[in-house]
Measured scan of single mutants.
Amino acid sequence: MASQGTKRSYEQMETDGERQNATEIRASVGKMIDGIGRFYIQMCTELKLSDYEGRLIQNSLTIERMVLSAFDERRNKYLEEHPSAGKDPKKTGGPIYKRVDRKWMRELVLYDKEEIRRIWRQANNGDDATAGLTHMMIWHSNLNDTTYQRTRALVRTGMDPRMCSLMQGSTLPRRSGAAGAAVKGVGTMVMELIRMIKRGINDRNFWRGENGRKTRSAYERMCNILKGKFQTAAQRAMMDQVRESRNPGNAEIEDLIFLARSALILRGSVAHKSCLPACVYGPAVASGYDFEKEGYSLVGIDPFKLLQNSQVYSLIRPNENPAHKSQLVWMACNSAAFEDLRVLSFIRGTKVSPRGKLSTRGVQIASNENMDAMESSTLELRSRYWAIRTRSGGNTNQQRASAGQISVQPAFSVQRNLPFDKPTIMAAFTGNTEGRTSDMRAEIIRMMEGAKPEEMSFQGRGVFELSDERAANPIVPSFDMSNEGSYFFGDNAEEYDN
């Protein structure tokens, strides 16, 4: 993207840094990872977990959730003011799984939030270390993106479920800051804005008074975040219109849905970061690795190297396929839920299948599930090659597409044709070009129609051997075009429920 120079890199967003050079960025990201790792080690000690239990991804998720809940100030305040039966607002906890007599047992633990905050700050040299908290939120978000298709949420806001490739980060909490905003897809931002506008339509006082002023500035800020994701002048001009509207209503909703559809071809720039579970960072720190000293990046080879040398386990339900569970977590670790499966298959070195073909449910185990038949197995999170994460949407291309997802959002900077089903997408653009945004709409449609099938995206960008740390010898991959490109292809993934 041309304006790259004016933006802070995501590592800076990730670490609240002012302008830093590459070495400083690597050190501050490393410091953040160190903090998460030290916190995780301490929690495993508190909970008396064995090494194996500490490497269980379900335990990692519970521990991450506990610290996120302990620092969720708004919710904590709300819980104190609106006490609900049987919930102690000062405590947080969740299921911890232990191996007892050759069987997995679930144990519900409860801790004072104050105590968890103390352990977290102690692991982070006394700081609140917001960057580390956001990092864990993005890992949870990436896992949700890989596990669930947001059909219901899309339909509720009037969008087409086939636009799911635009929904990265749709389950990120509001408090995820600049680093969170960077990884949100165009569809996620559109959905947040539509929800806001709908509230304004239904509630006369939404934009009024002292609160209304705050609401208005939040609305304009979200519009600017979305505008910054678009790469064409016409899309940005249309966002200006939406932002400046005196009284946002149905016309703005129409414009936003139009823009979301246009992003299936004229893709937005959305950041991709490899955020790993805390149970990967903990053992690495415990083994003596100093992330701050060595430096770390979320968008280069580092996460690949770390996963190459990590042992992570997962509980497996009786009829689940461990290899499929591994694929789910591998995609989440690489922030690749909406990437082209052919690119992923090449990088991973084994075939990556669409969601609907995987015999696996989510990673988390519900409290009512029976533990008797639970097994555990090693997650295979290694890769054959590594590639640089991208934040450009890439230019655009036609490809055989599917009944489910009709476009992709690249996660890796790797040369390819970008699949999208042009006739299906263009069919949504018939007729409606009147109104105050008509010239911009016409211009956007013209650009979409001009998108050429034979153009290559990320020209000359390749993948790298894991021994090639400096990215000196790019390998331009070859793809098996007979395979499906979309992950949520004609899909039956479970729906995400809060």
Rank of each mutant, 00 (worst) to 15 (best):
F412W: 12
G249V: 12
N76I: 02
Q364C: 06
A278G: 08
R208S: 12
R99T: 02
V476G: 08
V408S: 01
L266N: 10
Y219C: 03
N321H: 03
G177Y: 09
V29G: 07
S262Y: 06
E495M: 01
H135F: 07
S457E: 09
S176C: 01
E114I: 01
K351T: 02
R470T: 05
R416G: 14
K351C: 08
D340K: 04
Q20K: 04
V29C: 13
R117G: 15
E64M: 13
C164S: 04
E210Y: 12
L172E: 10
Y10S: 15
N321P: 08
S245I: 01
G93I: 08
K357H: 08
A131M: 08
Y10V: 00
V186R: 14
S262M: 10
Q415A: 14
N247H: 05
Y97R: 13
S359N: 01
P410Y: 08
G158K: 10
A251S: 06
V155L: 14
G268F: 12
A233P: 15
C164H: 05
R261S: 12
E320S: 08
S413K: 14
Y313I: 13
V299P: 07
Y385M: 02
E495Q: 07
Q231L: 12
F346T: 01
N144L: 01
E73P: 00
K214M: 08
S482Q: 10
A323M: 03
S345T: 01
A27V: 12
F258H: 10
Q235G: 09
N247W: 05
V100K: 12
M13D: 05
T151S: 03
M136I: 02
R117V: 00
L108P: 05
P89G: 00
E494M: 03
P318I: 06
R55E: 07
G30M: 09
T437Q: 07
M105W: 00
K325Y: 11
A181E: 14
N432R: 00
N492V: 12
E254M: 08
K77F: 14
A427K: 00
L344S: 05
S383V: 13
M13C: 04
I25P: 00
S69N: 05
R199L: 12
Q231V: 01
G349M: 08
I257W: 08
R216Q: 10
R8E: 11
A182D: 06
I301D: 13
A284T: 14
